[in-house]
Design a protein around this nucleic acid. Structure first.
Lengths: 324, 324
DNA sequence: TTGTATGCGTTATCAC
DNA sequence: GTGATAACGCATACAA
């Protein structure tokens, strides 16, 4: 069948109508698979997500949703691939079988084998998050180190001397998950700089863990007057532990964090925090990827976001000590 | 190149080794697109999700995660497609361009045009949720009507006379979203059956809306002593409103709900609720779809789950009245 | 047991 | 301005 009515070449009006009639009659729609084979591109991108087993955080969910949305806007489909211990087959299919034109990688670790694998494959890809050494890839990330450093300085300015960092799950931390490691770096830097007593504790990504974590912290460090956290899922639990102990925020205890805005605003009182623009990041990741695909020889780009810390109502000057 | 070493026909050991060597040398991997074209199937399923604009609930997230996980387990890839007003192109691509072997439909409304569209297309599909009239599709759903009816009966048994149903967002309700409508039906049935005073209110899918909603409810109905809800995202807000008003659960006020277990257990005190088995449902949806794909002539199957209501600690006998 | 040819549905190129 | 034909990469049926 002639299909020059894509406008690629002139066509007589009569013929066009005749073809259109047949199309309408048969309900013809071009087959995407055949087209992909012929054109050498699939109009599909892969999104590598953490496996379901450890339920996704809201922030990750926002990434997924915004990536899918942004991709749909430019008529790209999104193939989801869980990546983790038992799902290597899925990842391998994605990179080596030519199902996708490019890949967006989530939950990147400081040393991440998948990055090397992708580089070898030659498939365009971008990261939401970035590895330790590699400048040979495009990525978009949040400056966790900088934000945590700022948060701790803010607490120090308010007179807090003993502060804690509540970070992500032990598994993530020991796997070298980027945000967790960089948050620690920023925390240690600020603690050293201001001569504070700093405690770093991992914490599962859920309310219960948050509660247990803060309870343990309060028990073992009675002089603790402030915490900062990058674990948004733990926030409701942290809040409960505080309430149960009778500690009023911010009069008796200060909190800062790095979290999606919803979580910060849902905290009581509203949390002083750097708002991670997850929706924007997903969108940006898609356009970075589109750039990698259409112009592979362009040098990779790195976008490190440092959202401002919104001063809300969860921090105040330290009391002389919780026990006093 | 000979590629009968898929085991489809006998092959000499020497030849096999020779071929394997070449494969290793070249790093050859079969191209999925070409294979799909040849075999007439893509080994990919489509998952139609609500658009990102109204952020997905945790339950929906669990659906997505479990579907992706279950699909990966049987080597199926998942193509995500946001469906909503502005994303018709994405849905249309999915059903008509042969990119997928089958489709899982989420957030189904009582009257859902997409179902008719899919039936016309002949593409295998299953719903997580079901329409009003149609028995011509496979689906898996939770019996919201029955569960809410049970919950209200439970409250009535405890002596509550004026109870409220907090349902989903006004948009969802007026769009005829299945769970919202069926919850209302069950609520009205139980209210009529027990001669209660029933109030039904829509509520946005977030903590803030939950708080405002319950505050308004308490203001306008001072004699309200119990609520039941299917809006899990509103639960934290409901809890806060109660706490702010000084109402103790369950002594002063009772709550029941239909929610994923995490939410119920995270409530303080733990929520008496029917636990929606979202993870299991996603998995089940995949196997239903695989059945539709491999045996299209099989009659459609309907799975209506009625998870038991777990009695936790959020309900108690009604006081004579909140004001008394 | 092995090599070769055909066709899946498109798009692009080439004669007409 | 239009119709026929090759090629994308694979699987398979058929010939050797």
């Amino acid at each position: 069948m002639s299909y020059a009515l894509s406008g690629k070449r002139p066509v007589a009006n009569g013929t066009r109508r005749r073809i259109q009639d047949v199309i309408d009659e048969l309900g013809y729609r071009p087959n995407a698979t055949a087209r992909a084979l012929k054109e050498g591109r699939t109009r599909t991108i892969g999104l590598v997500v953490p496996p379901a087993r450890n339920r996704l955080t809201h922030m990750q969910l926002d990434f997924v949703a915004s990536v899918v949305d942004a991709a749909a806007r430019v008529d790209l489909d999104v193939l989801l691939s869980p990546s983790g211990r038992d799902h290597d087959r899925s990842f391998e299919r994605l990179v080596s079988e030519g199902r996708v034109d490019g890949i967006i990688l989530m939950e990147i670790r400081l040393e991440d084998a998948r990055v090397g694998r992708l580089q070898d494959s030659g498939l365009p890809f971008v990261g939401i998050g970035h590895t330790a050494g590699d400048r040979q890839m495009s990525w978009i990330d949040v400056d966790y180190a900088g934000l945590v450093r700022h948060s701790v300085r803010h607490l120090a300015d308010l007179g807090h001397r003993r502060v804690a960092l509540i970070t992500r799950s032990p598994e993530l931390v020991s796997a070298g998950y980027g945000p967790a490691c960089r948050a620690r770096d920023g925390f240690e830097a600020a603690v050293a700089e201001r001569g504070l007593d700093g405690i770093e504790v991992p914490c599962g990504d859920d309310a219960r863990s948050g509660q247990e974590c803060l309870e343990a912290l309060l028990r073992s460090h009675p002089d603790l007057t402030a915490v900062t956290t990058i674990n948004e899922a733990a926030l409701p639990g942290i809040q409960r532990a505080l309430a149960d102990t009778g500690l009023r925020v911010p009069y008796d205890f200060s909190i800062t964090g790095v979290a999606a805005r919803t979580w910060a605003e849902d905290f009581r009182p509203p949390l002083t925090a750097a708002d991670v623009p997850a929706l924007e990041m997903g969108e940006k990741a898609v356009s970075l990827l589109v750039e990698r695909i259409t112009a592979p020889d362009t040098p990779p780009r790195h976008i490190l976001l440092t959202p401002p810390i919104s001063l809300r109502s969860s921090t105040a000057a330290a009391r002389t000590g919780r026990q006093g």
